[in-house]
Simulated scan of single mutants.
Amino acid sequence: MYVIIVYDTEHDNCVKLHKQLKKYLFWNQNSVFEGTVTVAQYAKIKHILEETRAENSHITFYSIENEKFLCREEQGSAKGNISNIL
Rank of each mutant, 00 (worst) to 15 (best):
K79C: 09
V3A: 06
V15Q: 13
T9I: 06
L17H: 06
E65C: 12
A40S: 13
A78Q: 14
I59P: 01
F61K: 03
L86M: 12
F69M: 09
E73Q: 10
E55V: 09
K22T: 14
L21P: 02
T60C: 10
M1P: 02
T9Q: 01
L17G: 05
Y62A: 04
T9C: 12
F33Q: 00
E55H: 11
Y7M: 00
L86K: 13
A78W: 08
V32G: 03
N66S: 13
S77T: 14
N66D: 15
I5L: 07
F61W: 10
G35L: 04
A54N: 11
Y42H: 04
G80K: 05
L86D: 08
A40D: 14
C71S: 06
C71N: 12
R53M: 12
H58I: 12
Y42N: 08
S83P: 00
S57W: 06
S31E: 11
Y2E: 08
Q20D: 15
E51C: 05
S31D: 08
C14K: 15
S57K: 05
N56G: 15
A54Q: 04
Q75R: 14
F61P: 02
A54L: 10
R53Q: 10
V3K: 04
N30D: 13
C71K: 14
T52L: 02
S31C: 14
L86E: 11
L25F: 03
E73S: 14
H47D: 15
S57E: 08
T52C: 06
I48L: 09
L25A: 03
E74V: 08
V6L: 09
E74F: 11
I82S: 12
E67T: 06
S77G: 05
S57F: 06
S77N: 11
T38A: 02
H11K: 14
T52Y: 02
C14Y: 14
E50I: 09
